[in-house]
Amino acid sequence: MKRLAVIPARGGSKRIPRKNIRDFAGRPIIGWSIATALDSGLFDTVMVSTDDAEIAALAEVGGASVPFLRSAATSDDHATLVQVMAEVIAAYADQGRAFDAVCCILPTAPLLTAARLIQGAEMFASGGFDSVFALVAFAAPVQRALRRDADGMASMLQPEHYASRSQDLEPAYHDAGQFYWASVETWLSGAPVFSGRAGTIVLDPMEAQDIDTEADWQLAELKHLRRTNPR
């Protein structure tokens, strides 16, 4: 089975400028995703899809290939991950290269491990799923979520659960923001990776961290430090 890893890393991050190459524990954060992909031994090719020359150069230093840059159509704020993946797959097809499975690995996933990538690969290879990705459970029941209006007034989104016990409510999960295994056909279909027969792996909250704010970044660093220095 031929496998391709695609690490999408646009240069125009708004919330945390230059997020994809900012230093994280001694290396550009994208370097952790590249290293994990390479260490897994799963992939025939580990490539970075970017529109940015600096990101491309650092990706190649880290061991990834950057055989082409993104088009303008997949470099703006509105391009979807599926569109980026489809463009990469089509570009490789033009070179006469085909793959059986394609894994999108996010560039800001420094807590991702090779073991989890391998677990996802094995689950996908079982043939029972169109895609496989990682989840984390919400820390609190989403059925008891609150809304806040412009005056600061709170109200329940689902008031019927006001008296429900937390342990009686169905657990809910969110995307861990680490990796997405899928076939070429699934990526090219244009459908979200969460649709169809989507298989999932549940991570411990210490294994993942969305990084959209400075506070998120600090939490990711603390989790990384805890993993590398468990005492």
Rank of each mutant, 00 (worst) to 15 (best):
G12I: 04
K14H: 02
I16S: 01
P17V: 01
R18Y: 05
I21N: 01
I21T: 03
R22Y: 03
D23W: 03
F24Y: 01
P28G: 05
G31F: 02
G31N: 09
G31Y: 06
W32Q: 06
W32C: 00
S33L: 11
S33F: 04
I34E: 07
I34L: 09
I34A: 13
I34K: 05
A35H: 13
A35T: 04
T36C: 15
T36Y: 07
L38R: 14
G41H: 11
L42E: 14
L42R: 04
F43T: 08
D44H: 13
D44V: 01
T45G: 00
M47V: 13
M47K: 02
M47C: 15
V48S: 10
T50I: 07
A53D: 13
A53S: 13
I55T: 14
A56D: 12
A56L: 05
A57V: 00
A57P: 00
A57C: 05
A57R: 15
L58E: 14
L58I: 06
A59Y: 08
E60F: 01
V61P: 00
G62R: 02
G63A: 09
G63D: 08
A64P: 07
S65L: 08
V66I: 10
V66K: 04
P67Q: 00
L69P: 00
R70P: 00
S71W: 00
A72H: 05
A73K: 15
A73R: 12
A73W: 02
S75Y: 03
D76W: 00
D76R: 02
D76C: 05
D77N: 09
H78S: 14
L81K: 15
V82A: 14
V82Q: 13
V84K: 12
A86E: 08
A86M: 06
E87V: 06
V88Q: 09
A91K: 14
Y92I: 03
Y92V: 04
A93W: 10
D94A: 11
D94R: 15
Q95M: 13
Q95R: 15
R97W: 04
R97K: 14
R97H: 09
F99G: 10
F99W: 11
F99Y: 12
F99P: 10
F99C: 09
D100C: 05
A101E: 14
V102P: 02
V102L: 08
